[in-house]
Each structure stands twice: as structure tokens, then as C-alpha cells.
């Protein structure tokens, strides 16, 4: 009962005294420069181990139903285009029946009936303006914001994933998705093209003929260029993703920006800004079908994508590095 002699009012004081004594005691052991404590040798960080997060990110991204659904939709586009072309030309007519470009529809569509390989180019030309960037917008926009709204971001950061490392992993995953999505479209188109139409030597835009295997190589090159065309949107989506704690808001904003840019690119009065819009040179991939290849716009496109990656990647890093994680 000796403790009970202390009155309630003095309890706070005695507690505070205890603390003062404790801090005074610890103050004597000032900065010996030791890491953590004993029994805790600093655990080494190994490069192969830090890549574990990338592996984990890739595996959960491509295991999600949402990702698989997006890829399924993309794979369905060439199927629909192929079937539509087959039906329309079943009576021996030609697509659109218009001028040398086939009048309307995506590029190369007129050549599809002669050579199934052209379905790859047609499908990529059809999906590049919206389907592909929208799918990328969903994945990149959700990258950070989705983790934030699920609350998992705070646990990744205290793991500690490291903010820069997490951002790099998210961007690498978005880029991987760009490549996979493009290849899915190309592969689906090639399969449908081979199934519905004849395959053979390829006539380039310039009128020269190249062998089928050369044509395949060009198709692969085009797919890679199309995937690279999405680098800018990915960076933009990632940046938007660091601005909000709502995955849905980030996805919607990214897709909204994409549509806005596409509209701006169609307004002739705004031609001054057109060369700076990330989608402006997208369809330059067709120049790979010229013989010899016309590189100017292709290089401009890749340069522009690199610029967007640099600008919005840095902005995302600057923003995410200091952001208070309150979700």
C-alpha cells in the first residue's frame, strides 16, 4: 500500500519524472553510431532479392481476372475484324469498295483478303488509338492508387518496399503489360488471318514484294513499335496514379486524358501543339511497311515517348517520394 500514498494528482508528475530519468539515462549513450540493436546484424540487400518484388508484381498482375479480361477483349478485336472482312468479301467484292486505301476502316484492311498477315497490321491499327491505351490506362492508373485504396500500399511501404523501388516495379510491370497486350493482339490476328485467309509473299506500301518470313519479321517489329508507342501513356497513368488514393479515379482520369488528347489531335486549328501530343505519331508504325523503311516519324514517335516517360516518370517519382500515405 505504500504506492497508494501517492495522490492521483502526483501520478502524472511521477510518471513524467520516470520518463525524464529514462531520457537522461539514454542521453549518456549518445550516438555510438551503431545500427539497430544487438541480435540484429543488418540484413544484406541483394539484387536478386530486390527483384522478388517485380516477380511478385508481374505474377499478381497477370493472375488478376481484370487483366485477363482486358487481354481477352484485345484478343477478340482481330477475330471480329477478321470475320467482318471475311463476310463482306465472301461474295468476291472488296472491302469498302473505295479507293486504293480501301476507303474507310483501319489501314491495310483492303489487303487482308489477299494475305492474312495484313490482319496483324489492321488489328494493331484498329486497337492502337483506343483499346490498347485504354487497357494500359487501367493497369497504369491503378498501379499506385489501387494499392492505396486497398490499404495494401502502407504495408508494402513498411515491408519496406522503398518508394522508388515500388514505383520502378510498377512502371516496369505497366511496360510489360504494354508488350504483352500488343503481342496478344498480334498473335490473335496472325492466327485468325492464317485461318481465314491465304498467306504468302507480302506487298509493301511502296509496291515491292518481300518474302513471307520477311513479312513476319516486319510484323514483329511493328508489334514492338506499337508497344513502345504506349510508353508515354503508361508514364502518364503512373503519374496520375500517384495523385489520388482512388484506383477508379486514377483509371478514369488516365482514360479521360487519352480521349482528350485524341480529340485535340483531330482539331486542325491546334496543329501547333500536335507534335507534342503523345498519340500524334502513333500510326507511323505503318512506315515500317515501306521499302526502304521511312524512319523520320518512327524516330519522332519513339523520341516523344521517351520524353513523356522522362517528364511524367520524374513527376511521379517527385510526387510519390514525399507523399503522405494516409490510406
Amino acid at each position: 500500500m505504500s504506492r497508494a500514498e501517492v495522490t492521483a494528482g502526483a501520478a502524472g508528475a511521477s510518471g513524467a519524472d520516470g520518463v525524464r530519468a529514462a531520457t537522461a539515462a539514454t542521453a549518456k549513450e549518445t550516438d555510438t553510431g551503431h545500427p539497430a540493436g544487438p541480435g540484429s546484424p543488418p540484413r544484406p540487400v541483394r539484387l536478386a532479392w530486390t527483384l522478388g518484388l517485380l516477380r511478385s508484381e508481374l505474377s499478381i498482375t497477370f493472375r488478376r481476372w481484370r487483366t485477363l479480361a482486358l487481354l481477352a477483349v484485345l484478343a477478340a478485336v482481330p477475330v471480329l475484324v477478321g470475320i467482318a472482312v471475311k463476310i463482306e468479301t465472301g461474295d468476291g467484292g472488296s472491302v469498302g469498295g473505295g479507293g486504293p486505301d480501301g476507303g474507310g476502316g483501319p489501314a491495310f484492311i483492303a489487303q487482308v483478303t489477299n494475305n492474312g498477315l495484313f490482319l496483324v497490321f489492321t488489328a494493331l491499327a484498329a486497337t492502337l488509338p483506343f483499346f490498347l491505351p485504354m487497357a494500359i490506362g487501367v493497369v497504369a492508373g491503378d498501379a499506385i492508387a489501387g494499392e492505396a485504396s486497398a490499404g495494401t500500399l502502407r504495408y508494402l511501404l513498411v515491408a519496406p518496399a522503398g518508394r522508388t523501388r515500388l514505383l520502378l516495379v510498377k512502371y516496369a510491370t505497366a511496360l510489360t503489360f504494354c508488350l504483352v497486350a500488343t503481342l496478344v493482339v498480334a498473335a490473335s490476328a496472325l492466327a485468325v488471318g492464317a485461318l481465314l485467309f491465304p498467306l504468302g509473299e507480302v506487298t509493301t506500301i511502296s509496291g515491292t514484294r518481300i518474302s513471307f518470313s520477311d513479312g513476319l519479321l516486319r510484323a514483329l517489329l511493328i508489334a514492338l513499335v506499337v508497344a513502345a508507342s504506349l510508353i508515354g501513356v503508361s508514364a502518364l497513368g503512373l503519374f496520375v496514379s500517384t495523385m489520388t488514393s482512388s484506383g477508379i479515379a486514377a483509371m478514369a482520369t488516365t482514360v479521360g486524358l487519352l480521349i482528350t488528347v485524341q480529340i485535340l489531335d483531330q482539331i486542325p486549328q491546334l496543329h501547333a501543339i500536335h507534335p507534342y501530343l503523345f498519340s500524334h505519331y502513333w500510326l507511323s508504325f505503318a512506315d515500317l511497311m515501306r521499302d526502304p523503311v521511312y524512319w523520320d516519324d518512327l524516330v519522332k514517335n519513339l523520341g516523344l515517348q521517351a520524353l513523356y516517360a522522362g517528364v511524367f516518370g520524374s513527376a511521379a517519382w517527385a510526387r510519390f517520394g514525399v507523399k503522405d500515405i494516409a490510406s
Partner: peptide, 15 residues
């Protein structure tokens, strides 16, 4: 203000 290092007897959290 006292500053401490994480010695065995010290504070694990110090603000």
C-alpha cells in the same frame, strides 16, 4: 533534447 542510439538499454522509439 536528448538523442539516443539504439543501444540495448536505450529507447526503441524516441521522439
Amino acid at each position: 533534447m536528448p538523442s539516443t542510439s539504439g543501444t540495448p538499454t536505450g529507447s526503441v522509439i524516441e521522439t
